[in-house]
Simulated scan of single mutants.
Amino acid sequence: MINKKSIGIFDSGYGGLTVFGSIADQLPDYNYIYFGDNARAPYGDHSYETIYQYTLECVEWLFAQGCPLVILACNTASAKALRTIQQKVLPFKYPGYRVLGVIRPTAEVIGSYTVSDTIGVMGTRGTVNSESYLLEIHHLYPEIKVIQQSCPMWVPLIENNEHVNEGADYFVRKYIDNLLEQSPDIDAILLACTHYPLLIPKIAAYLPEGIQLVAQGEIVAGSLKKYLANHPEIESQLGKEGKMQFYTSGDDQDFNKHASIFFPKEVVSTHVDLKV
């Protein structure tokens, strides 16, 4: 019998598709189920309790679809829900299941991107206010100074496909200037939201020479590859037919249309009703 269990990939909306694209590129043989909670996106300005509840509902839905491993391809969910799910839910309710995030893998390698030991982190309010990157990076690289900047307008601009227009430049430049005014020593900027890679051309246009932009897709994909190699008890459960399924709590036709901005292949999704 062929085991067809899938790797679940979750995001509050479309941004996780940028991570999924890198994962599928590095690990093309596995089966995947992507779920976007578009009906309740964006998560960035919600409370901890709300983000945790929404994330848990989506993770449990992916478990029910046969995903023994779920990747939270969302910085806000990783910052505000991952640890509680790992420590207080999985051991008691879902032993044998695993949920991973995007913050730890990124923090593990961020030291290789800076010479000045000063990095900038740009993310949603939820991610920045959680201070998750400050804590993780300080734990791994106590010598690195982390400067944070929330960018509350970037996700709405991207999700409404306004990021390519000139009007977006004002908000791109505003948040970059706010970040760089905090320290002249920043030589690397982490885009701590999976939506933000779509803004890289505009961001790069307003950055001084010598500052490196760090996106998470390749980092998370490489980390997942190592994880599967080191955890045969999970890897052996996964089907390898190269299948991809897409689901959204929002409008499926709208999801398909917008997904093409984030994902390199055609996306055909199915609507799912979740408890709201």
Rank of each mutant, 00 (worst) to 15 (best):
F263D: 12
M153C: 10
V70Q: 03
S132H: 02
M122T: 08
L90A: 08
Y43K: 00
D45K: 11
S223D: 15
N161T: 10
I23K: 05
Q253K: 15
E136S: 11
Y141E: 09
N160K: 10
L191V: 01
E209D: 09
Q216Y: 06
H46A: 00
S269E: 06
E162V: 00
Q253N: 15
R104G: 07
S132C: 11
G101Q: 11
L62R: 01
S249Q: 01
V155S: 01
L190I: 13
Q87Y: 07
Y175D: 00
E162Y: 11
S260E: 15
L179K: 08
I186E: 11
L82A: 10
K174A: 03
K80F: 02
I33F: 04
L191C: 08
M244H: 10
E159N: 01
D117A: 08
L62S: 01
D252F: 14
I137Y: 01
L198D: 04
P152M: 04
D29Q: 13
Q149Y: 13
E241I: 12
V172D: 06
G44V: 03
M122Q: 08
I103S: 05
V121F: 02
D37L: 02
Q253D: 15
I219L: 14
M1P: 06
Y48L: 07
Y54W: 05
A107R: 05
A215K: 08
N160A: 08
G16H: 00
Q245G: 11
L100F: 11
Y34G: 09
S47H: 05
D37C: 01
T248F: 05
T118Y: 14
V109W: 15
I189Q: 11
Y54P: 00
P152W: 03
L198F: 02
N256K: 05
S12T: 01
D29C: 07
A107E: 07
H195W: 05
A64V: 06
L190D: 05
A221S: 12
E235Y: 00
K93I: 01
L274T: 10
L100R: 04
E233W: 09
K257H: 12
H195F: 05
H138R: 13
L199R: 01
Q245I: 07
K80V: 07
L198R: 02
V89W: 04
R173Q: 15
T124E: 02
S236D: 09
E49M: 10
K225N: 10
I103F: 01
S112V: 15
N38L: 09
Q245E: 15
D45W: 00
L69W: 06
P105L: 12
R83Q: 04
Q253A: 14
R173Y: 08
A81H: 06
L27D: 04
I219E: 05
W154L: 04
L27F: 02
E49N: 09
K5N: 11
Y247I: 12
N178C: 12
L224V: 05
